[in-house]
Simulated assay, not measured.
Amino acid sequence: MSTETITQEHRTAGITTAAPWRVRTVAVLANYCLSVTCNDGTAGTVDMSQLISSEQAGIFAALKDEQLFDQVRIELGALTWPNGADLDPVWMHEEIGKNKTWCVPR
């Protein structure tokens, strides 16, 4: 199942929608992976499988539930889930820019 979310413009004072690291689109892939595209066109895959299965997963452990994982959304340019989990978009942008794939560490 592939779902895709496209960010909406945020017009809140002080928020710049053009920041290159902001996530513009996200699609859920198999095996706890996401396909993302940022404002500057940087695109790649985020592999969360190692983090989610780690004993130190913390808040991310709940994302083993694929129905919850599939509820990823974009808030202010960052990937978030209903349980409060989120990923640092600047770090993700840097890693995808270098490698096209980011295996989120445990």
Rank of each mutant, 00 (worst) to 15 (best):
M1I: 03
M1R: 07
M1D: 12
S2I: 01
S2C: 06
S2G: 01
S2P: 13
T3I: 01
E4Q: 11
T5A: 10
I6Q: 08
Q8R: 07
Q8A: 10
E9V: 08
H10E: 15
R11Q: 07
T12K: 10
G14V: 02
G14L: 07
T16W: 14
T16V: 11
A18I: 08
A18L: 14
W21K: 00
W21F: 09
W21E: 02
W21N: 00
R22I: 03
R22L: 15
V23E: 11
V23R: 09
R24N: 08
T25M: 08
T25F: 12
A27D: 10
V28Q: 12
A30D: 15
N31A: 05
N31S: 06
Y32N: 05
Y32Q: 04
C33Q: 09
C33S: 01
L34W: 10
T37V: 06
T37R: 05
T37L: 00
C38T: 05
C38K: 09
N39E: 14
N39Q: 13
G41L: 00
G41W: 04
T42F: 15
G44Q: 02
G44T: 00
T45C: 03
V46K: 07
D47P: 02
D47W: 01
M48L: 09
M48S: 04
S49I: 08
S49M: 08
Q50S: 12
I52N: 08
S53H: 13
S54G: 11
S54M: 06
S54F: 15
S54A: 14
E55G: 15
E55C: 03
E55L: 13
G58T: 04
I59S: 03
F60P: 07
F60R: 03
A61I: 02
A62T: 06
D65F: 07
D65Q: 04
E66N: 12
Q67V: 04
L68K: 00
L68R: 01
L68A: 05
F69A: 01
F69G: 06
D70S: 12
E75W: 13
L76W: 14
G77M: 04
A78P: 05
L79A: 02
T80L: 05
T80N: 07
T80P: 06
T80K: 13
T80C: 14
P82C: 02
N83T: 08
G84H: 00
G84N: 03
G84W: 08
D86F: 14
D86N: 12
L87T: 03
D88L: 03
P89K: 00
P89A: 04
W91Y: 15
W91P: 08
W91E: 15
W91K: 14
M92E: 11
E95R: 09
E95Q: 15
E95S: 05
E95N: 09
G97Q: 01
G97F: 09
K98F: 15
K100L: 10
T101Q: 13
T101V: 13
W102T: 02
C103E: 08
C103G: 10
R106E: 15
